[in-house]
Structures are given as C-alpha cells and as structure tokens.
Amino acid sequence: MDTNLIVLTLASVLADSSPLVFAVIGETLGEKAGITNLSLDGTILLSAMVGFAVAFTTDNLYLAFLAAMLVGASVASIVAFSSIVLKLDQIAVGFVLTMLCADLSTFFGNPYVRKPGPAVPHLAMPGLGEIPVIGKIFFDQNAVVYLSLLVILAVWWWIYKTQPGLQLQSIGERPAAAFARGANVNAQRFVYTVLGGALVGFGGAAYSLFVKLGWSYHHTSGIGWIALAVVIFGGWHPIRGAIGAYIFGGLQSLSGLAQSVPAFANVPTQVFQTAPFALMIVALLLVSNQAIDRFFSGSPISRKVWQSLRGAPPGALGTVFEQE
C-alpha cells in the first residue's frame, strides 16, 4: 500500500468517525456526572432525521445542526428529569426512549427517505492543509470534523484542568461529599446530561449531513449502541473514548477494504455487517474481564499500566442522589 492511500484512509477514518466521537464525548460528559443516557441509539436516529429534514426544507445547515442538538437535549432532559426528580430506573426510561425515538424517526422521516439534500461543504484549512501528511489528514476536512477534534480537547480540558470540571468528577464519584462541599449535585447532573445530549444530537446530524448523506429507515445502523460501548471501552475518559471511536472506525473501514480482497471473497457480506457488534462484545470483554486483570497483575509495572488503560466507571454512576 502506498503512502497516499494510507493518508487518504486515515483522513476518511477521522471524518467518518466524527458522529461516533460526538456521541461518545456527549455520553461521557453525562456519565461522568453520574447519569447514564441509554437512549443514545434512538437519540441519534431522531436527531439525524430532524437534522436532515431541516436542512432539506430550509437549506440552512446551521439551523439543521441546531435543531438536531435541540432534539438530543430534549431527549436527554427527559432522562435527567425522570432520574433526578422522579428517581426512576435510568435503564428503563432510556430503553423506552430508544424505541420511541426510533419509531418517531421512521414516522416523521417518511417523506424524506432517499431524497437528495444538502451536505456539509468541504473546507480545507488555508495553509495548514498544505502540510504534507498531517495537513491532508487533519486540515483537509470540513468544519464538523474540526469541531469534533475541538470538542474532544475542550471536554478533556474542562473535566481534568478546570475547577468546575473537578466538581463534575466529584458529583459522579462521591455526590454526598461534593454536596457537603457546596456543589448543587442534581442541578449540575441535569446540565451535564442535557449538554451531553446536545452533543449526541450534533453527532446525529453529522451522520445524515455528511457521513451517510440523506435519510432512510434506521439510517444510523446501531451506532448509538456502539457509542455506549465505546464510552466503557474508553474508561469514561474523553480522549481514550475518542481513540476508541477512531479504532472502531478504522476497523470498520478495514473490513470494508477486506471485502474487496480476493482472499475474503467467499466471506458473505452479512459477516462484515455484524462485525461491528461482535467487535463491541470483544472490546468490552477485553476491558472488563477478570482473567485479563490477573494476567496483568503479575508485576507492579504491568498492573499500573493496565489500570491506567482500562479506567473505572464513576463511583455513583446510575444512582439517585437525595439532597435534603
């Protein structure tokens, strides 16, 4: 394989993974605060549909992304409200919302099926795009891809380098302690969940407005579930989560390439289509298996390296906090 092809492949992985990156970062934000938004797959479907529909009717991409973010934020606010105020099971509410949003996207998306519509325009960074390899991969993309990179760094910086970010970690890990130190745990949980939902919605619109243009039945093919798994795989860390998303996107484009290799000609396409989900199970098995823990705990150094790689869920993830 020549360098040019590798560079082009890496550039397309970076671009095609961007919806997944937005979803992973958004979900990480909410889960860091202690709330699981399981509705991700439905949210992405609905926001992808709404994003495309708005772009199709108004021809205004800003409006389209705004509408998609609004959809994501609204769904997330139902999750947050039912969990914080009504103290309901986050998984139950999230699952019902997944189903409902999927059906809503099919119902309202019906008139837009397979219609050609607007797309996010290509926008090479002047100057930077000319840098040989790096420029082609990172700076010869569109605004959404640049934003996805920016969001990874911004969320990482916010969580780990700022005072409010430290508080965000504490309300997800030890809400009672955070509350004792003056944090309004539930208000912050609400804000981060809704903000995360808006990012997920943005990812949905990115999917239908440039990665896989347009709208069709169950258009986003299960990407929301993948995002939920990647959050775990990334150990609830935005940068590791993003790397997980890119690994995932890379493997998917590899399987796309493998399909055209003569040696794999006998492998049916169905195998390749289910590969992402089999891969999801394997990835989760890798980061949560006790046998692998034991394997790495042989020496103190390897244990330390492994622990820093896998990460643990926020201590209070999925639990209700009563602040009286």
Binding site: I78, S82, L86, L88, A92, V93, V96, L97, M99, L100, A102, D103, L104, T106, F107
Partner: peptide, 13 residues
C-alpha cells in the same frame, strides 16, 4: 410503535 412507545414512556413516568 409511536403509540406503544408513547404510552409506555408516559406510564413509566
């Protein structure tokens, strides 16, 4: 599906 999902969501809430 919209009707079913809506009813279950409202019931759970």
């Amino acid at each position: 599906g919209v009707l079913q999902g809506m009813i279950v969501l409202l019931y759970v809430l």
